[in-house]
Amino acid sequence: MHATTAITDYVAAVWRCRYFWFSLVKNDLRTRYHRSLLGLGWSLLNPLAMTAVLCTVFHRLWGLPISEYGPFVLSGLAFWGFISTCTLQGCRCFYQAETYIRQYPAPLVIYPLRTALGAGFHLVIALCVVLAATWWFQGLGNLGALWSLLPTLLVLFVLGWSLAILAGVANVMFPDMQHLLEVGLQILFYATPILYKAEMLRERGQGWLVDLNPMAVFLDCLRHPLLEGRPPSLALLGHACLWGLLAATASGICLARWQRRLVFLL
C-alpha cells in the first residue's frame, strides 16, 4: 500500500513538471535542427548514407537486391540509432541537468525522459523514411499491418527510457562507464541482425545469438509490419513486452536505490 502511494505520488510529480521537461525536449530538437542547413534531413543523413554504402557493397559482392536490402538495413539502423542514443546520451543526462538537480527537487526520472523523448522523435522520423522506401520499392502492401507499430513503439520507448536511466545512474557512479558502454554497444551492434538476417546465423548454428538477444525481438516487431506487411505474432509482442517490463523494473529499482544519493555524487 505504502509503495503504491509512493509510486502514485512520484508519477504525479513527474506529471506536474510536464511543461518543464517537454519544453526542454522541444528546445533540444530545435537547437539540433537550427544548427544545420538540412534541418531534419541532417539527422537522417547518417543512416541514409550508411544504407547507400552497404547496399552498393552487398549488391556488388553478393547480388543482394537493393529493393529488399535497402529498407531492411535502414530499419535496422533507425532502431539502433534509438538504442545507442538512449544509452550514450543517457550517460550524460544527470550531468547535463546537474544545475537543475542542485536547485529543485524535481523527480530525477524526467532527465532520462528528456533523452528518450528526443531519441524517440528521431526514431519516428527515421521510420517514416523506411516506410517511404518500402512503399517505393515494394508498394503499399504493408498498410494493414502498420497499426501494430503503435504497441511496439510504446514498449520500445519504455526500453529506451529504462536504458537512459540505467546508463545515467551507472555513469554518475563510475565516470568511465560511457566508454565501456560504447565498446559494449559496438559488440551488441554486430551481434544483432541489423546488417544481416537472423536466418544467416541460424543456418550456421549460431541461432542462440539471436534468441538470447532482446534487441532482435524488438527489431523483429518493427520489421514485420514495415517490411513484410504482417503484424508481429502475439508471442513476439509478448516477448518484447517482457523485456520492456524487465528493463523498466531494473531501472525503477536502480532509481529507487540511488535517487536520494545521486545529488551527492554529481
Partner: peptide, 25 residues
C-alpha cells in the same frame, strides 16, 4: 540559491524564462 546556474545556453532569454518558470511550477 545558485540562481545564476541552470540555463540552457543555446536557448534565448525568452525561452529560458519559460524553462525556469515551468520548473518553479
Amino acid at each position: 540559491f545558485d540562481i545564476s546556474l541552470g540555463f540552457e545556453p543555446e536557448a534565448t532569454g525568452w525561452e529560458n524564462i519559460a524553462f525556469r518558470a515551468y520548473l518553479q511550477g
